[in-house]
Design a protein around this nucleic acid. Structure first.
Lengths: 107, 107
DNA sequence: TCATAATATCAATATATCTTGATATATTAT
DNA sequence: ATAATATATCAAGATATATTGATATTATGA
């Protein structure tokens, strides 16, 4: 019950649906990319990404100070069916602005 | 997006998961049966049942003053996969107390 | 080491959802 | 018609979740 509710509540938010769609479309992205693309502050995105990760939808790969988030594979049947539903929604996404490649994310 | 969130948020509550499981196990039941079995007040159940109905999981058949709720069939792929997940959770349910057959629900 | 960048987490506020008790509607029996 | 039952809905308070700004942590380069 716990786990199922964690999975479901991860899906129960518009921002998270958009993040899932965005990562599904563009592959692995770091928080700073999403921050720039979505125009949201970092702490908000970081929190939502954690919820999606804990819900079993995302994986995180650390590379230095960057945390690259991407759709976890393979997804189990329920999560992958959920993602399929989300793909059918035709959600409008903001353009990708990839700071981590243009050099604006320095370290 | 709207519709998907309505579907998902219907699943995002422990009471509703139990109600789904209960109806999945026992078939069509009226609100007064659920009220007695779950020991919850009527307005609370009525509200949750409406959310499950609006989320596409339940149908309602009116028979006089009774409203019989049951799992909608057929369920689409996502909802039916969700129900399959829920069946795997092994949720403990209260015993069925069927007032509508023992005559305690009079009219 | 020191400064800076990327990310995570915390505390406070804002917002949404759930629960309850009261009321409204509809159906049936007397 | 009147009374009683079943259900639905509303308004208020209780609880949970989301958002924000501030702070903490970690990694890198000068």
């Amino acid at each position: 019950m716990e786990i199922f509710l964690e999975t479901v509540s991860a899906l129960n938010d518009e921002t998270r649906i958009k993040l899932l769609t965005f990562l599904d479309t563009h592959g692995a992205l770091c928080v700073c990319d999403l921050q720039e693309s979505f125009g949201m502050i970092q702490s908000r995105l970081s929190r939502h990404l954690k919820i999606l990760k804990d819900g079993g939808f995302l994986r995180v790969d650390r590379c230095g100070t960057w945390a690259y988030y991407s759709i976890r594979t393979p997804l189990d049947q329920f999560r992958s069916e959920a993602l399929a539903e989300i793909r059918c929604l035709g959600i409008e996404l903001p353009p990708l602005i990839k700071l981590s490649e243009t050099g604006d994310c320095k370290l």
